[in-house]
Nucleic acid binder design. Structure first.
Lengths: 193, 193
DNA sequence: ACCTGAACACCGTTCAAGT
DNA sequence: ACCTGAACACCGTTCAAGT
Protein backbone atom coordinates (compact mmCIF):
# COMPACT_ATOMS: atom_id res chain seq x y z
CA UNK A 1 0.00 0.00 0.00
CA UNK A 2 2.32 2.69 1.29
CA UNK A 3 5.14 3.26 -1.15
CA UNK A 4 8.42 2.53 0.62
CA UNK A 5 11.33 4.86 0.01
CA UNK A 6 13.97 2.16 -0.27
CA UNK A 7 15.92 1.84 -3.56
CA UNK A 8 19.52 2.96 -3.13
CA UNK A 9 20.03 2.19 0.58
CA UNK A 10 21.65 -1.16 1.30
CA UNK A 11 18.92 -3.67 2.45
CA UNK A 12 19.90 -5.23 5.76
CA UNK A 13 19.13 -8.66 7.18
CA UNK A 14 17.25 -6.99 10.03
CA UNK A 15 15.01 -5.20 7.55
CA UNK A 16 14.37 -8.47 5.72
CA UNK A 17 13.50 -10.28 8.94
CA UNK A 18 11.22 -7.51 10.17
CA UNK A 19 9.33 -7.30 6.89
CA UNK A 20 9.03 -11.08 6.64
CA UNK A 21 7.62 -11.21 10.17
CA UNK A 22 5.07 -8.55 9.26
CA UNK A 23 3.95 -10.53 6.21
CA UNK A 24 3.75 -13.74 8.25
CA UNK A 25 1.70 -12.03 10.96
CA UNK A 26 -0.68 -10.87 8.28
CA UNK A 27 -1.04 -14.01 6.17
CA UNK A 28 0.86 -16.91 7.68
CA UNK A 29 4.15 -18.47 6.64
CA UNK A 30 2.52 -20.34 3.75
CA UNK A 31 1.50 -17.02 2.19
CA UNK A 32 5.03 -15.63 2.38
CA UNK A 33 6.92 -15.86 -0.89
CA UNK A 34 10.37 -14.59 -1.73
CA UNK A 35 8.86 -12.62 -4.57
CA UNK A 36 6.19 -10.93 -2.46
CA UNK A 37 8.73 -10.15 0.25
CA UNK A 38 11.01 -8.57 -2.34
CA UNK A 39 8.13 -6.52 -3.72
CA UNK A 40 7.31 -5.31 -0.20
CA UNK A 41 10.94 -4.24 0.18
CA UNK A 42 10.90 -2.67 -3.29
CA UNK A 43 13.80 -4.80 -4.41
CA UNK A 44 14.53 -7.45 -7.00
CA UNK A 45 13.61 -10.96 -5.74
CA UNK A 46 17.14 -12.17 -6.33
CA UNK A 47 18.67 -9.51 -4.11
CA UNK A 48 17.34 -11.39 -1.09
CA UNK A 49 19.64 -14.30 -1.81
CA UNK A 50 22.59 -12.09 -1.07
CA UNK A 51 21.53 -11.90 2.57
CA UNK A 52 19.81 -15.22 3.06
CA UNK A 53 20.69 -18.71 1.84
CA UNK A 54 17.16 -19.70 0.90
CA UNK A 55 13.57 -19.49 2.06
CA UNK A 56 13.97 -22.14 4.75
CA UNK A 57 16.92 -20.26 6.26
CA UNK A 58 14.96 -17.02 6.15
CA UNK A 59 12.07 -18.58 8.06
CA UNK A 60 14.47 -20.14 10.55
CA UNK A 61 15.97 -16.70 11.10
CA UNK A 62 12.60 -15.10 11.79
CA UNK A 63 11.68 -17.96 14.16
CA UNK A 64 14.99 -17.65 15.99
CA UNK A 65 14.34 -13.97 16.47
CA UNK A 66 10.94 -14.65 18.02
CA UNK A 67 12.22 -17.51 20.16
CA UNK A 68 15.00 -15.33 21.54
CA UNK A 69 12.30 -13.08 22.98
CA UNK A 70 11.11 -15.83 25.32
CA UNK A 71 11.88 -14.57 28.83
CA UNK A 72 12.48 -17.74 30.81
CA UNK A 73 11.45 -17.54 34.45
CA UNK A 74 14.49 -17.38 36.77
CA UNK A 75 15.27 -20.00 39.40
CA UNK A 76 14.02 -18.00 42.38
CA UNK A 77 12.84 -19.81 45.47
CA UNK A 78 9.20 -20.12 44.40
CA UNK A 79 7.41 -23.50 44.59
CA UNK A 80 7.71 -25.59 41.43
CA UNK A 81 4.02 -25.22 40.70
CA UNK A 82 4.38 -21.46 40.37
CA UNK A 83 7.50 -21.76 38.26
CA UNK A 84 5.80 -24.18 35.89
CA UNK A 85 2.86 -21.79 35.57
CA UNK A 86 5.24 -18.94 34.83
CA UNK A 87 7.02 -20.95 32.13
CA UNK A 88 3.77 -22.00 30.46
CA UNK A 89 2.54 -18.43 30.64
CA UNK A 90 5.70 -17.06 29.02
CA UNK A 91 5.40 -19.56 26.18
CA UNK A 92 1.73 -18.84 25.62
CA UNK A 93 2.23 -15.07 25.61
CA UNK A 94 4.87 -15.34 22.94
CA UNK A 95 2.63 -17.55 20.81
CA UNK A 96 -0.22 -15.11 21.16
CA UNK A 97 2.00 -12.24 20.03
CA UNK A 98 2.72 -13.98 16.69
CA UNK A 99 0.22 -16.82 16.33
CA UNK A 100 0.87 -17.49 12.64
CA UNK A 101 4.62 -17.60 13.08
CA UNK A 102 4.11 -19.86 16.05
CA UNK A 103 2.07 -22.26 13.97
CA UNK A 104 5.05 -22.49 11.64
CA UNK A 105 7.39 -23.16 14.58
CA UNK A 106 5.10 -25.92 15.79
CA UNK A 107 5.00 -27.47 12.34
CA UNK A 108 8.78 -27.24 11.95
CA UNK A 109 10.15 -28.34 15.33
CA UNK A 110 13.65 -28.54 13.87
CA UNK A 111 14.01 -24.74 14.07
CA UNK A 112 13.95 -24.78 17.88
CA UNK A 113 16.63 -26.48 19.95
CA UNK A 114 14.66 -28.45 22.50
CA UNK A 115 17.77 -29.19 24.54
CA UNK A 116 18.45 -25.57 25.51
CA UNK A 117 16.17 -22.78 26.69
CA UNK A 118 12.73 -24.05 27.62
CA UNK A 119 13.91 -27.64 27.85
CA UNK A 120 16.54 -26.91 30.47
CA UNK A 121 14.15 -24.87 32.60
CA UNK A 122 11.47 -27.53 32.30
CA UNK A 123 13.84 -30.24 33.45
CA UNK A 124 14.97 -28.17 36.43
CA UNK A 125 11.36 -27.60 37.48
CA UNK A 126 10.45 -31.27 37.07
CA UNK A 127 13.41 -32.22 39.20
CA UNK A 128 12.18 -29.84 41.90
CA UNK A 129 8.73 -31.38 41.55
CA UNK A 130 10.13 -34.73 42.62
CA UNK A 131 9.94 -36.49 39.26
CA UNK A 132 12.32 -39.48 39.38
CA UNK A 133 15.59 -38.76 37.61
CA UNK A 134 15.08 -41.41 34.93
CA UNK A 135 11.75 -39.89 33.92
CA UNK A 136 12.66 -36.20 33.91
CA UNK A 137 13.69 -36.19 30.25
CA UNK A 138 10.62 -38.03 28.99
CA UNK A 139 8.28 -36.00 31.17
CA UNK A 140 9.84 -32.80 29.89
CA UNK A 141 9.11 -33.79 26.31
CA UNK A 142 5.58 -34.84 27.23
CA UNK A 143 4.77 -31.53 28.90
CA UNK A 144 6.34 -29.64 26.01
CA UNK A 145 4.10 -31.55 23.61
CA UNK A 146 1.02 -30.98 25.81
CA UNK A 147 1.56 -27.24 26.13
CA UNK A 148 2.52 -26.65 22.50
CA UNK A 149 -0.40 -28.81 21.38
CA UNK A 150 -2.81 -26.83 23.52
CA UNK A 151 -1.46 -23.43 22.46
CA UNK A 152 -1.40 -24.47 18.80
CA UNK A 153 -5.06 -25.50 18.91
CA UNK A 154 -6.00 -22.42 20.89
CA UNK A 155 -4.28 -19.86 18.66
CA UNK A 156 -5.54 -21.58 15.52
CA UNK A 157 -9.11 -21.50 16.78
CA UNK A 158 -8.98 -17.81 17.62
CA UNK A 159 -7.03 -16.48 14.65
CA UNK A 160 -10.04 -14.90 13.00
CA UNK A 161 -12.16 -13.91 15.98
CA UNK A 162 -11.36 -11.73 18.94
CA UNK A 163 -9.90 -13.52 21.97
CA UNK A 164 -13.16 -14.08 23.89
CA UNK A 165 -10.92 -13.94 26.93
CA UNK A 166 -13.22 -15.38 29.58
CA UNK A 167 -13.76 -18.95 28.30
CA UNK A 168 -10.31 -19.27 26.84
CA UNK A 169 -8.56 -18.33 30.05
CA UNK A 170 -10.69 -20.76 32.02
CA UNK A 171 -9.73 -23.51 29.56
CA UNK A 172 -6.10 -22.62 29.99
CA UNK A 173 -6.43 -22.68 33.77
CA UNK A 174 -8.00 -26.13 33.67
CA UNK A 175 -5.23 -27.40 31.40
CA UNK A 176 -2.50 -26.14 33.73
CA UNK A 177 -4.22 -27.58 36.79
CA UNK A 178 -4.62 -30.96 35.13
CA UNK A 179 -0.87 -31.07 34.56
CA UNK A 180 0.02 -29.83 38.04
CA UNK A 181 -2.30 -32.32 39.70
CA UNK A 182 -1.01 -35.16 37.55
CA UNK A 183 2.58 -34.33 38.42
CA UNK A 184 1.87 -33.85 42.12
CA UNK A 185 0.14 -37.22 42.43
CA UNK A 186 3.32 -39.06 41.51
CA UNK A 187 1.16 -41.86 40.08
CA UNK A 188 2.64 -41.49 36.61
CA UNK A 189 6.09 -42.70 37.58
CA UNK A 190 5.71 -45.80 39.75
CA UNK A 191 6.10 -48.30 36.91
CA UNK A 192 8.77 -50.99 37.10
CA UNK A 193 9.62 -52.22 33.60
CA UNK B 1 8.76 -47.62 -11.27
CA UNK B 2 6.39 -50.39 -12.28
CA UNK B 3 4.53 -49.40 -15.42
CA UNK B 4 0.81 -49.27 -14.62
CA UNK B 5 -1.58 -50.70 -17.15
CA UNK B 6 -4.20 -47.99 -16.86
CA UNK B 7 -5.05 -45.92 -19.97
CA UNK B 8 -8.47 -46.82 -21.27
CA UNK B 9 -10.18 -47.89 -18.02
CA UNK B 10 -12.20 -45.18 -16.31
CA UNK B 11 -10.19 -43.78 -13.33
CA UNK B 12 -12.27 -43.95 -10.16
CA UNK B 13 -12.27 -41.74 -7.10
CA UNK B 14 -11.23 -44.72 -4.99
CA UNK B 15 -8.19 -45.25 -7.19
CA UNK B 16 -7.28 -41.58 -6.90
CA UNK B 17 -7.61 -41.65 -3.11
CA UNK B 18 -5.61 -44.85 -2.75
CA UNK B 19 -2.79 -43.59 -4.94
CA UNK B 20 -2.75 -40.21 -3.20
CA UNK B 21 -2.51 -41.94 0.17
CA UNK B 22 0.39 -44.02 -1.07
CA UNK B 23 2.26 -40.91 -2.24
CA UNK B 24 1.54 -39.12 1.04
CA UNK B 25 2.77 -42.11 3.06
CA UNK B 26 5.96 -42.01 1.05
CA UNK B 27 6.70 -38.29 0.98
CA UNK B 28 4.19 -36.33 3.03
CA UNK B 29 1.26 -34.20 1.92
CA UNK B 30 3.56 -31.31 0.97
CA UNK B 31 5.28 -33.52 -1.60
CA UNK B 32 2.01 -34.52 -3.23
CA UNK B 33 1.21 -32.59 -6.36
CA UNK B 34 -1.68 -32.99 -8.74
CA UNK B 35 0.80 -33.44 -11.55
CA UNK B 36 2.79 -36.16 -9.81
CA UNK B 37 -0.39 -37.93 -8.78
CA UNK B 38 -1.60 -37.85 -12.38
CA UNK B 39 1.74 -39.21 -13.60
CA UNK B 40 1.51 -42.04 -11.05
CA UNK B 41 -1.96 -42.86 -12.41
CA UNK B 42 -0.71 -42.54 -15.98
CA UNK B 43 -3.28 -39.89 -16.77
CA UNK B 44 -3.37 -36.27 -17.81
CA UNK B 45 -3.20 -33.92 -14.80
CA UNK B 46 -6.46 -32.28 -15.80
CA UNK B 47 -8.38 -35.55 -15.74
CA UNK B 48 -8.22 -35.49 -11.95
CA UNK B 49 -10.41 -32.40 -11.85
CA UNK B 50 -13.23 -34.43 -13.24
CA UNK B 51 -13.36 -36.48 -10.03
CA UNK B 52 -12.18 -33.97 -7.47
CA UNK B 53 -12.91 -30.27 -7.05
CA UNK B 54 -9.35 -29.24 -6.23
CA UNK B 55 -6.30 -30.30 -4.26
CA UNK B 56 -7.75 -29.27 -0.88
CA UNK B 57 -10.85 -31.38 -1.50
CA UNK B 58 -8.70 -34.32 -2.57
CA UNK B 59 -6.69 -34.14 0.65
CA UNK B 60 -9.87 -33.79 2.71
CA UNK B 61 -11.16 -36.92 1.01
CA UNK B 62 -8.06 -38.93 1.85
CA UNK B 63 -8.16 -37.69 5.45
CA UNK B 64 -11.83 -38.56 5.78
CA UNK B 65 -11.07 -42.05 4.57
CA UNK B 66 -8.38 -42.51 7.22
CA UNK B 67 -10.49 -40.95 9.97
CA UNK B 68 -13.37 -43.28 9.18
CA UNK B 69 -11.08 -46.17 10.09
CA UNK B 70 -10.89 -45.02 13.70
CA UNK B 71 -12.59 -47.76 15.72
CA UNK B 72 -14.06 -45.91 18.69
CA UNK B 73 -14.21 -47.98 21.88
CA UNK B 74 -17.80 -48.98 22.76
CA UNK B 75 -19.58 -47.92 25.93
CA UNK B 76 -19.12 -51.22 27.76
CA UNK B 77 -19.13 -51.26 31.55
CA UNK B 78 -15.39 -50.75 31.95
CA UNK B 79 -14.05 -48.07 34.31
CA UNK B 80 -13.54 -44.68 32.67
CA UNK B 81 -9.76 -44.95 33.03
CA UNK B 82 -9.68 -48.02 30.82
CA UNK B 83 -12.01 -46.47 28.28
CA UNK B 84 -9.87 -43.36 28.06
CA UNK B 85 -6.79 -45.52 27.56
CA UNK B 86 -8.56 -47.43 24.80
CA UNK B 87 -9.57 -44.23 23.04
CA UNK B 88 -6.08 -42.78 23.19
CA UNK B 89 -4.66 -46.07 21.98
CA UNK B 90 -7.04 -46.21 19.02
CA UNK B 91 -6.09 -42.69 18.01
CA UNK B 92 -2.37 -43.34 18.34
CA UNK B 93 -2.54 -46.57 16.33
CA UNK B 94 -4.22 -44.80 13.47
CA UNK B 95 -1.63 -42.03 13.50
CA UNK B 96 1.18 -44.57 13.48
CA UNK B 97 -0.34 -46.32 10.47
CA UNK B 98 -0.13 -43.13 8.38
CA UNK B 99 2.11 -40.69 10.24
CA UNK B 100 2.59 -38.26 7.37
CA UNK B 101 -1.11 -38.06 6.60
CA UNK B 102 -1.74 -37.58 10.29
CA UNK B 103 0.64 -34.65 10.39
CA UNK B 104 -1.47 -33.07 7.67
CA UNK B 105 -4.66 -33.72 9.67
CA UNK B 106 -3.09 -32.11 12.72
CA UNK B 107 -2.05 -29.08 10.68
CA UNK B 108 -5.49 -28.79 9.08
CA UNK B 109 -7.93 -29.36 11.93
CA UNK B 110 -10.82 -28.18 9.76
CA UNK B 111 -10.89 -31.54 7.96
CA UNK B 112 -12.02 -33.37 11.11
CA UNK B 113 -15.33 -32.69 12.79
CA UNK B 114 -14.40 -32.39 16.45
CA UNK B 115 -18.05 -32.48 17.50
CA UNK B 116 -18.70 -36.02 16.33
CA UNK B 117 -16.70 -39.23 16.64
CA UNK B 118 -13.83 -38.88 19.09
CA UNK B 119 -15.31 -35.76 20.65
CA UNK B 120 -18.58 -37.46 21.62
CA UNK B 121 -16.81 -40.47 23.10
CA UNK B 122 -14.40 -38.23 24.99
CA UNK B 123 -17.23 -36.23 26.50
CA UNK B 124 -19.04 -39.38 27.58
CA UNK B 125 -15.92 -40.69 29.29
CA UNK B 126 -15.23 -37.39 31.02
CA UNK B 127 -18.77 -37.35 32.31
CA UNK B 128 -18.24 -40.82 33.71
CA UNK B 129 -15.00 -39.60 35.27
CA UNK B 130 -16.94 -37.10 37.33
CA UNK B 131 -15.86 -33.95 35.50
CA UNK B 132 -18.40 -31.22 36.32
CA UNK B 133 -20.89 -30.68 33.52
CA UNK B 134 -19.79 -27.12 32.79
CA UNK B 135 -16.19 -28.23 32.25
CA UNK B 136 -16.75 -31.37 30.16
CA UNK B 137 -16.59 -29.52 26.85
CA UNK B 138 -13.44 -27.55 27.68
CA UNK B 139 -11.73 -30.57 29.18
CA UNK B 140 -12.55 -32.62 26.11
CA UNK B 141 -10.81 -30.07 23.89
CA UNK B 142 -7.85 -29.89 26.25
CA UNK B 143 -7.33 -33.65 26.27
CA UNK B 144 -7.77 -33.76 22.49
CA UNK B 145 -5.05 -31.11 22.17
CA UNK B 146 -2.78 -32.93 24.62
CA UNK B 147 -3.07 -36.30 22.91
CA UNK B 148 -2.81 -34.97 19.36
CA UNK B 149 0.13 -32.77 20.40
CA UNK B 150 1.91 -35.75 21.93
CA UNK B 151 1.25 -38.07 19.00
CA UNK B 152 2.24 -35.38 16.49
CA UNK B 153 5.59 -34.84 18.22
CA UNK B 154 6.11 -38.57 18.61
CA UNK B 155 5.39 -39.57 15.03
CA UNK B 156 7.41 -36.64 13.70
CA UNK B 157 10.42 -37.62 15.80
CA UNK B 158 10.33 -41.22 14.66
CA UNK B 159 9.53 -40.76 10.99
CA UNK B 160 13.03 -41.56 9.82
CA UNK B 161 14.22 -44.01 12.45
CA UNK B 162 12.75 -47.31 13.55
CA UNK B 163 10.27 -47.12 16.44
CA UNK B 164 12.71 -47.86 19.30
CA UNK B 165 9.64 -49.27 20.99
CA UNK B 166 10.86 -49.50 24.60
CA UNK B 167 11.46 -45.81 25.43
CA UNK B 168 8.61 -44.56 23.30
CA UNK B 169 6.03 -46.80 24.91
CA UNK B 170 7.23 -45.81 28.38
CA UNK B 171 6.86 -42.16 27.41
CA UNK B 172 3.37 -42.84 26.19
CA UNK B 173 2.49 -44.65 29.41
CA UNK B 174 3.72 -41.72 31.51
CA UNK B 175 1.70 -39.29 29.40
CA UNK B 176 -1.50 -41.29 29.84
CA UNK B 177 -0.94 -41.67 33.57
CA UNK B 178 -0.35 -37.95 33.98
CA UNK B 179 -3.71 -37.28 32.41
CA UNK B 180 -5.54 -39.98 34.35
CA UNK B 181 -4.07 -38.81 37.66
CA UNK B 182 -4.85 -35.18 36.88
CA UNK B 183 -8.46 -36.02 36.06
CA UNK B 184 -8.89 -38.31 39.08
CA UNK B 185 -7.63 -35.68 41.51
CA UNK B 186 -10.49 -33.36 40.66
CA UNK B 187 -8.26 -30.41 41.54
CA UNK B 188 -8.54 -28.92 38.06
CA UNK B 189 -12.20 -28.06 38.39
CA UNK B 190 -12.76 -26.44 41.79
CA UNK B 191 -12.40 -22.86 40.56
CA UNK B 192 -15.19 -20.36 41.19
CA UNK B 193 -14.94 -17.51 38.66
C1' DA C 1 -19.54 -38.37 -20.28
C1' DC C 2 -14.96 -38.26 -19.87
C1' DC C 3 -10.55 -36.80 -21.15
C1' DT C 4 -6.85 -33.58 -22.90
C1' DG C 5 -3.46 -29.70 -24.66
C1' DA C 6 -2.33 -25.21 -24.33
C1' DA C 7 -2.18 -21.46 -21.52
C1' DC C 8 -2.14 -18.38 -17.23
C1' DA C 9 -0.49 -16.87 -13.04
C1' DC C 10 2.18 -18.12 -9.80
C1' DC C 11 6.45 -20.50 -7.13
C1' DG C 12 12.02 -21.10 -5.51
C1' DT C 13 16.35 -20.82 -7.27
C1' DT C 14 20.73 -20.68 -10.61
C1' DC C 15 23.72 -18.20 -13.24
C1' DA C 16 25.94 -14.98 -16.00
C1' DA C 17 26.07 -10.25 -16.44
C1' DG C 18 25.83 -5.58 -14.93
C1' DT C 19 27.37 -1.22 -11.58
C1' DA D 1 30.49 -5.83 -2.97
C1' DC D 2 26.05 -5.71 -4.12
C1' DC D 3 22.36 -6.02 -7.24
C1' DT D 4 19.66 -7.69 -11.36
C1' DG D 5 17.32 -9.90 -15.76
C1' DA D 6 16.55 -13.87 -18.03
C1' DA D 7 15.85 -18.50 -17.60
C1' DC D 8 14.71 -23.25 -15.61
C1' DA D 9 11.95 -26.43 -13.47
C1' DC D 10 8.30 -26.69 -11.01
C1' DC D 11 3.23 -25.54 -9.05
C1' DG D 12 -2.59 -25.35 -9.18
C1' DT D 13 -6.11 -24.38 -12.11
C1' DT D 14 -9.18 -22.51 -16.31
C1' DC D 15 -10.98 -23.18 -20.59
C1' DA D 16 -11.94 -24.48 -25.09
C1' DA D 17 -11.52 -28.39 -27.77
C1' DG D 18 -11.39 -33.21 -28.70
C1' DT D 19 -13.51 -38.49 -28.55
Amino acid sequence: MAVRTRRGEPLSLDEIHATALRLIDAGGAEALSMRKLAAELDVNPMSLYHHVENKTALLAGVCGLAISQLRLPPDDGRPWQEQLRALAHAYRSLAQAHPRLWAYVHEHPEVVDRKEGMGAVLRRILHAAGVPERDVEATSEILYAFVTGFVYAETRDHLGEHPGAEDVDRSYEIAIRLILAGLASGEAFDTQP
